[in-house]
Design a protein around this nucleic acid. Sequence first.
DNA 1: AATCAAATTTATAATCGTTGCAAAGATATA
DNA 2: TATATCTTTGCAACGATTATAAATTTGATT
Lengths: 138, 138
Amino acid sequence: MYTSAQAHKYLNQFSIKPSVQRTAIMEYLLSHRTHPTIEEIFLALSPSMPTLSKTTVYNTLNLFLENRVVQQLVIDEKNARFDVDTSSHAHFICKSCGKVYDIFNMPSALFEFPKNTGFSIQSVEISYTGVCEHCKES
Amino acid sequence: MYTSAQAHKYLNQFSIKPSVQRTAIMEYLLSHRTHPTIEEIFLALSPSMPTLSKTTVYNTLNLFLENRVVQQLVIDEKNARFDVDTSSHAHFICKSCGKVYDIFNMPSALFEFPKNTGFSIQSVEISYTGVCEHCKES
DNA sequence: AATCAAATTTATAATCGTTGCAAAGATATA
DNA sequence: TATATCTTTGCAACGATTATAAATTTGATT
Protein backbone atom coordinates (compact mmCIF):
# COMPACT_ATOMS: atom_id res chain seq x y z
CA MET A 1 0.00 0.00 0.00
CA TYR A 2 1.20 3.46 -0.85
CA THR A 3 0.59 6.70 1.00
CA SER A 4 -0.64 9.87 -0.59
CA ALA A 5 2.78 11.40 0.14
CA GLN A 6 4.40 8.71 -1.97
CA ALA A 7 1.92 9.25 -4.78
CA HIS A 8 2.69 12.96 -4.54
CA LYS A 9 6.41 12.29 -4.99
CA TYR A 10 5.72 9.90 -7.82
CA LEU A 11 3.80 12.58 -9.74
CA ASN A 12 6.57 15.08 -9.13
CA GLN A 13 8.99 12.76 -10.88
CA PHE A 14 6.87 13.13 -13.99
CA SER A 15 6.46 16.90 -13.51
CA ILE A 16 2.73 16.58 -12.98
CA LYS A 17 1.13 19.05 -10.62
CA PRO A 18 -0.22 16.91 -7.79
CA SER A 19 -3.76 18.06 -7.23
CA VAL A 20 -5.88 16.27 -4.64
CA GLN A 21 -7.65 14.26 -7.32
CA ARG A 22 -4.52 13.35 -9.25
CA THR A 23 -2.74 12.28 -6.09
CA ALA A 24 -5.66 10.10 -5.00
CA ILE A 25 -5.83 8.43 -8.41
CA MET A 26 -2.06 7.91 -8.46
CA GLU A 27 -2.17 6.42 -4.97
CA TYR A 28 -4.93 4.08 -6.07
CA LEU A 29 -3.00 2.95 -9.14
CA LEU A 30 0.18 2.35 -7.16
CA SER A 31 -1.68 0.37 -4.51
CA HIS A 32 -3.99 -1.66 -6.75
CA ARG A 33 -2.09 -3.35 -9.51
CA THR A 34 -5.19 -5.00 -10.91
CA HIS A 35 -5.20 -3.06 -14.20
CA PRO A 36 -8.31 -1.18 -13.18
CA THR A 37 -10.83 0.39 -15.54
CA ILE A 38 -11.94 4.02 -15.26
CA GLU A 39 -15.16 2.81 -13.67
CA GLU A 40 -13.31 0.80 -11.04
CA ILE A 41 -11.09 3.72 -10.10
CA PHE A 42 -14.07 6.04 -9.92
CA LEU A 43 -16.14 3.67 -7.78
CA ALA A 44 -13.24 3.03 -5.42
CA LEU A 45 -12.51 6.70 -4.80
CA SER A 46 -16.04 8.09 -4.84
CA PRO A 47 -16.95 7.20 -1.24
CA SER A 48 -14.04 9.12 0.24
CA MET A 49 -14.24 11.84 -2.41
CA PRO A 50 -17.92 12.47 -3.06
CA THR A 51 -17.40 15.38 -5.43
CA LEU A 52 -15.11 13.41 -7.73
CA SER A 53 -16.35 13.37 -11.29
CA LYS A 54 -15.86 10.51 -13.68
CA THR A 55 -14.71 13.05 -16.26
CA THR A 56 -11.83 13.90 -13.95
CA VAL A 57 -10.80 10.27 -13.85
CA TYR A 58 -10.84 10.20 -17.66
CA ASN A 59 -8.89 13.48 -17.88
CA THR A 60 -6.36 12.36 -15.33
CA LEU A 61 -5.68 9.01 -16.94
CA ASN A 62 -5.22 10.71 -20.30
CA LEU A 63 -2.75 13.08 -18.68
CA PHE A 64 -0.93 10.13 -17.13
CA LEU A 65 -0.82 8.40 -20.51
CA GLU A 66 0.62 11.45 -22.28
CA ASN A 67 3.33 11.66 -19.66
CA ARG A 68 4.03 7.93 -19.72
CA VAL A 69 3.11 7.55 -16.05
CA VAL A 70 0.90 4.63 -16.94
CA GLN A 71 0.46 2.25 -19.81
CA GLN A 72 -2.89 1.54 -21.43
CA LEU A 73 -3.71 -2.11 -22.01
CA VAL A 74 -5.68 -3.04 -25.10
CA ILE A 75 -6.55 -6.55 -23.97
CA ASP A 76 -10.14 -6.01 -22.90
CA GLU A 77 -12.58 -5.28 -25.70
CA LYS A 78 -15.00 -3.63 -23.34
CA ASN A 79 -12.94 -1.12 -21.34
CA ALA A 80 -9.60 0.60 -21.31
CA ARG A 81 -7.34 -0.71 -18.55
CA PHE A 82 -4.34 0.95 -16.99
CA ASP A 83 -1.08 -0.34 -15.60
CA VAL A 84 1.44 1.64 -13.51
CA ASP A 85 4.01 -1.02 -14.26
CA THR A 86 5.41 0.11 -17.59
CA SER A 87 8.16 -2.51 -17.67
CA SER A 88 8.11 -5.50 -20.04
CA HIS A 89 5.63 -8.09 -18.89
CA ALA A 90 2.78 -10.01 -20.43
CA HIS A 91 -0.91 -10.15 -19.48
CA PHE A 92 -3.62 -12.73 -19.25
CA ILE A 93 -7.35 -11.99 -19.41
CA CYS A 94 -9.93 -14.48 -18.16
CA LYS A 95 -12.82 -14.81 -20.59
CA SER A 96 -15.05 -15.85 -17.73
CA CYS A 97 -14.51 -13.23 -15.01
CA GLY A 98 -12.77 -10.57 -17.09
CA LYS A 99 -9.90 -10.10 -14.64
CA VAL A 100 -6.52 -9.19 -16.09
CA TYR A 101 -3.46 -10.82 -14.54
CA ASP A 102 0.26 -10.12 -14.90
CA ILE A 103 2.59 -12.74 -16.27
CA PHE A 104 6.13 -11.90 -15.21
CA ASN A 105 9.33 -13.84 -15.81
CA MET A 106 8.81 -14.23 -19.53
CA PRO A 107 12.01 -14.53 -21.57
CA SER A 108 13.08 -11.00 -22.41
CA ALA A 109 13.50 -11.99 -26.07
CA LEU A 110 9.72 -11.94 -26.33
CA PHE A 111 9.67 -8.20 -25.90
CA GLU A 112 12.31 -7.39 -28.50
CA PHE A 113 11.07 -5.64 -31.61
CA PRO A 114 11.35 -7.49 -34.94
CA LYS A 115 13.93 -6.05 -37.36
CA ASN A 116 13.51 -4.94 -40.96
CA THR A 117 9.78 -4.59 -40.86
CA GLY A 118 9.81 -1.08 -42.27
CA PHE A 119 7.84 0.12 -39.25
CA SER A 120 9.11 2.37 -36.45
CA ILE A 121 8.03 0.14 -33.60
CA GLN A 122 7.60 1.87 -30.25
CA SER A 123 5.94 -0.73 -28.02
CA VAL A 124 4.79 -4.35 -27.76
CA GLU A 125 1.87 -5.90 -26.01
CA ILE A 126 1.67 -9.63 -25.38
CA SER A 127 -1.76 -10.83 -24.33
CA TYR A 128 -2.99 -14.31 -23.46
CA THR A 129 -6.62 -15.28 -23.27
CA GLY A 130 -8.28 -18.21 -21.52
CA VAL A 131 -9.80 -19.16 -18.19
CA CYS A 132 -8.24 -18.44 -14.80
CA GLU A 133 -7.80 -20.98 -12.01
CA HIS A 134 -10.64 -19.66 -9.96
CA CYS A 135 -13.15 -19.76 -12.81
CA LYS A 136 -12.02 -23.23 -13.90
CA GLU A 137 -13.26 -24.69 -10.62
CA SER A 138 -16.73 -23.20 -10.78
CA MET B 1 -9.21 -12.15 -55.17
CA TYR B 2 -11.73 -14.79 -54.28
CA THR B 3 -14.99 -15.64 -56.01
CA SER B 4 -18.32 -16.00 -54.28
CA ALA B 5 -18.18 -19.71 -55.14
CA GLN B 6 -14.97 -20.03 -53.17
CA ALA B 7 -16.43 -18.13 -50.25
CA HIS B 8 -19.40 -20.48 -50.42
CA LYS B 9 -17.14 -23.51 -50.17
CA TYR B 10 -15.19 -21.91 -47.37
CA LEU B 11 -18.34 -21.46 -45.31
CA ASN B 12 -19.38 -25.02 -45.98
CA GLN B 13 -16.16 -26.21 -44.40
CA PHE B 14 -17.31 -24.58 -41.19
CA SER B 15 -20.87 -25.88 -41.54
CA ILE B 16 -22.26 -22.38 -41.92
CA LYS B 17 -25.27 -22.00 -44.14
CA PRO B 18 -24.10 -19.73 -46.94
CA SER B 19 -26.74 -17.05 -47.31
CA VAL B 20 -26.17 -14.30 -49.84
CA GLN B 21 -25.04 -11.89 -47.13
CA ARG B 22 -22.75 -14.34 -45.37
CA THR B 23 -21.15 -15.34 -48.63
CA ALA B 24 -20.56 -11.73 -49.64
CA ILE B 25 -18.98 -10.94 -46.28
CA MET B 26 -16.84 -14.07 -46.42
CA GLU B 27 -15.70 -13.22 -49.93
CA TYR B 28 -14.78 -9.73 -48.77
CA LEU B 29 -12.78 -11.05 -45.84
CA LEU B 30 -10.93 -13.58 -47.97
CA SER B 31 -10.09 -10.96 -50.57
CA HIS B 32 -9.22 -8.03 -48.29
CA ARG B 33 -6.73 -9.08 -45.66
CA THR B 34 -6.56 -5.63 -44.16
CA HIS B 35 -8.15 -6.56 -40.81
CA PRO B 36 -11.27 -4.59 -41.65
CA THR B 37 -13.68 -3.11 -39.16
CA ILE B 38 -17.44 -3.71 -39.27
CA GLU B 39 -17.86 -0.25 -40.74
CA GLU B 40 -15.35 -0.92 -43.50
CA ILE B 41 -17.03 -4.17 -44.46
CA PHE B 42 -20.43 -2.54 -44.44
CA LEU B 43 -19.33 0.45 -46.54
CA ALA B 44 -17.58 -1.80 -49.04
CA LEU B 45 -20.57 -4.08 -49.61
CA SER B 46 -23.38 -1.53 -49.36
CA PRO B 47 -23.16 -0.21 -52.92
CA SER B 48 -23.65 -3.63 -54.50
CA MET B 49 -26.04 -4.76 -51.76
CA PRO B 50 -28.22 -1.78 -50.93
CA THR B 51 -30.49 -3.63 -48.51
CA LEU B 52 -27.61 -4.85 -46.38
CA SER B 53 -27.97 -3.85 -42.76
CA LYS B 54 -25.08 -3.06 -40.48
CA THR B 55 -26.69 -5.31 -37.88
CA THR B 56 -26.30 -8.19 -40.31
CA VAL B 57 -22.60 -7.48 -40.58
CA TYR B 58 -22.37 -7.55 -36.78
CA ASN B 59 -24.43 -10.74 -36.54
CA THR B 60 -22.43 -12.44 -39.24
CA LEU B 61 -19.06 -11.59 -37.77
CA ASN B 62 -20.21 -12.86 -34.39
CA LEU B 63 -21.32 -16.08 -36.05
CA PHE B 64 -17.94 -16.35 -37.76
CA LEU B 65 -16.19 -15.79 -34.45
CA GLU B 66 -18.20 -18.47 -32.66
CA ASN B 67 -17.30 -20.92 -35.39
CA ARG B 68 -13.65 -19.87 -35.47
CA VAL B 69 -13.88 -18.79 -39.10
CA VAL B 70 -12.21 -15.53 -38.18
CA GLN B 71 -10.16 -14.17 -35.36
CA GLN B 72 -10.95 -10.89 -33.62
CA LEU B 73 -8.02 -8.56 -33.08
CA VAL B 74 -7.93 -6.46 -29.94
CA ILE B 75 -5.21 -4.11 -31.12
CA ASP B 76 -7.32 -1.10 -32.00
CA GLU B 77 -8.93 0.68 -29.05
CA LYS B 78 -11.59 2.17 -31.27
CA ASN B 79 -13.00 -0.72 -33.30
CA ALA B 80 -13.08 -4.48 -33.44
CA ARG B 81 -11.01 -5.81 -36.31
CA PHE B 82 -11.24 -9.19 -37.99
CA ASP B 83 -8.72 -11.51 -39.57
CA VAL B 84 -9.46 -14.58 -41.71
CA ASP B 85 -5.92 -15.73 -41.13
CA THR B 86 -6.16 -17.59 -37.84
CA SER B 87 -2.59 -18.88 -37.93
CA SER B 88 0.13 -17.59 -35.61
CA HIS B 89 1.32 -14.18 -36.73
CA ALA B 90 1.86 -10.80 -35.12
CA HIS B 91 0.32 -7.43 -35.92
CA PHE B 92 1.43 -3.85 -36.09
CA ILE B 93 -0.85 -0.84 -35.76
CA CYS B 94 0.19 2.61 -36.95
CA LYS B 95 -0.69 5.28 -34.42
CA SER B 96 -0.86 7.82 -37.19
CA CYS B 97 -3.08 6.25 -39.86
CA GLY B 98 -4.63 3.46 -37.80
CA LYS B 99 -3.88 0.75 -40.35
CA VAL B 100 -3.16 -2.74 -39.03
CA TYR B 101 -0.41 -4.71 -40.76
CA ASP B 102 0.61 -8.36 -40.54
CA ILE B 103 4.05 -9.34 -39.32
CA PHE B 104 4.81 -12.85 -40.51
CA ASN B 105 7.97 -14.90 -40.09
CA MET B 106 8.25 -14.35 -36.37
CA PRO B 107 10.00 -17.17 -34.46
CA SER B 108 7.32 -19.69 -33.58
CA ALA B 109 8.54 -19.74 -29.97
CA LEU B 110 6.87 -16.36 -29.55
CA PHE B 111 3.46 -17.95 -29.87
CA GLU B 112 4.00 -20.73 -27.37
CA PHE B 113 2.04 -20.47 -24.17
CA PRO B 114 3.96 -20.00 -20.91
CA LYS B 115 3.91 -23.01 -18.55
CA ASN B 116 2.88 -23.20 -14.91
CA THR B 117 0.90 -20.02 -14.86
CA GLY B 118 -2.16 -21.62 -13.34
CA PHE B 119 -4.24 -20.34 -16.25
CA SER B 120 -5.82 -22.37 -19.04
CA ILE B 121 -4.41 -20.35 -21.90
CA GLN B 122 -6.29 -20.64 -25.18
CA SER B 123 -4.79 -17.95 -27.41
CA VAL B 124 -2.05 -15.32 -27.72
CA GLU B 125 -2.00 -11.98 -29.40
CA ILE B 126 1.23 -10.13 -30.11
CA SER B 127 0.75 -6.50 -31.04
CA TYR B 128 3.31 -3.85 -31.94
CA THR B 129 2.56 -0.14 -32.01
CA GLY B 130 4.40 2.69 -33.76
CA VAL B 131 4.44 4.56 -37.05
CA CYS B 132 4.34 2.94 -40.48
CA GLU B 133 6.71 3.74 -43.33
CA HIS B 134 4.18 5.75 -45.24
CA CYS B 135 3.30 7.98 -42.28
CA LYS B 136 6.96 8.46 -41.34
CA GLU B 137 7.57 10.29 -44.61
CA SER B 138 4.72 12.74 -44.27
C1' DA C 1 -5.86 39.80 2.77
C1' DA C 2 -7.92 41.06 -1.89
C1' DT C 3 -7.56 40.62 -6.82
C1' DC C 4 -6.96 38.42 -10.97
C1' DA C 5 -5.36 35.04 -14.43
C1' DA C 6 -4.52 30.39 -15.31
C1' DA C 7 -5.20 25.71 -14.29
C1' DT C 8 -8.29 22.17 -12.78
C1' DT C 9 -12.55 20.06 -11.86
C1' DT C 10 -17.25 19.36 -12.64
C1' DA C 11 -21.89 18.34 -14.75
C1' DT C 12 -24.19 17.77 -18.82
C1' DA C 13 -24.72 16.81 -23.49
C1' DA C 14 -23.07 14.59 -27.54
C1' DT C 15 -20.84 10.88 -30.11
C1' DC C 16 -19.97 6.40 -31.57
C1' DG C 17 -19.48 1.35 -31.53
C1' DT C 18 -22.19 -2.35 -30.30
C1' DT C 19 -26.24 -5.09 -28.78
C1' DG C 20 -31.33 -6.11 -27.99
C1' DC C 21 -35.52 -6.76 -29.92
C1' DA C 22 -39.44 -7.52 -32.61
C1' DA C 23 -41.18 -7.46 -37.23
C1' DA C 24 -40.47 -8.75 -41.98
C1' DG C 25 -38.58 -11.73 -45.30
C1' DA C 26 -36.51 -15.99 -47.04
C1' DT C 27 -35.90 -20.99 -47.02
C1' DA C 28 -36.93 -25.73 -46.42
C1' DT C 29 -40.03 -29.42 -45.47
C1' DA C 30 -44.29 -31.76 -45.42
C1' DT D 1 -49.88 -24.37 -50.38
C1' DA D 2 -49.18 -24.33 -45.47
C1' DT D 3 -46.13 -24.21 -41.76
C1' DA D 4 -42.09 -24.00 -38.99
C1' DT D 5 -37.52 -22.31 -38.78
C1' DC D 6 -33.82 -19.46 -39.95
C1' DT D 7 -32.05 -15.03 -41.45
C1' DT D 8 -32.18 -10.30 -42.20
C1' DT D 9 -33.59 -5.78 -41.18
C1' DG D 10 -34.50 -1.26 -38.90
C1' DC D 11 -34.76 1.00 -34.90
C1' DA D 12 -34.24 1.64 -30.11
C1' DA D 13 -31.27 1.16 -26.25
C1' DC D 14 -26.91 0.90 -23.97
C1' DG D 15 -22.36 1.94 -22.40
C1' DA D 16 -17.74 3.84 -22.87
C1' DT D 17 -15.59 7.92 -24.10
C1' DT D 18 -15.11 12.80 -25.49
C1' DA D 19 -16.58 17.74 -26.06
C1' DT D 20 -17.99 21.76 -23.97
C1' DA D 21 -18.73 25.36 -21.04
C1' DA D 22 -19.48 26.79 -16.38
C1' DA D 23 -17.77 26.58 -11.67
C1' DT D 24 -14.09 26.04 -8.56
C1' DT D 25 -9.45 26.02 -7.00
C1' DT D 26 -4.75 27.50 -7.13
C1' DG D 27 -0.96 30.62 -7.27
C1' DA D 28 1.01 34.91 -8.13
C1' DT D 29 0.83 39.87 -7.50
C1' DT D 30 -0.35 43.82 -5.29
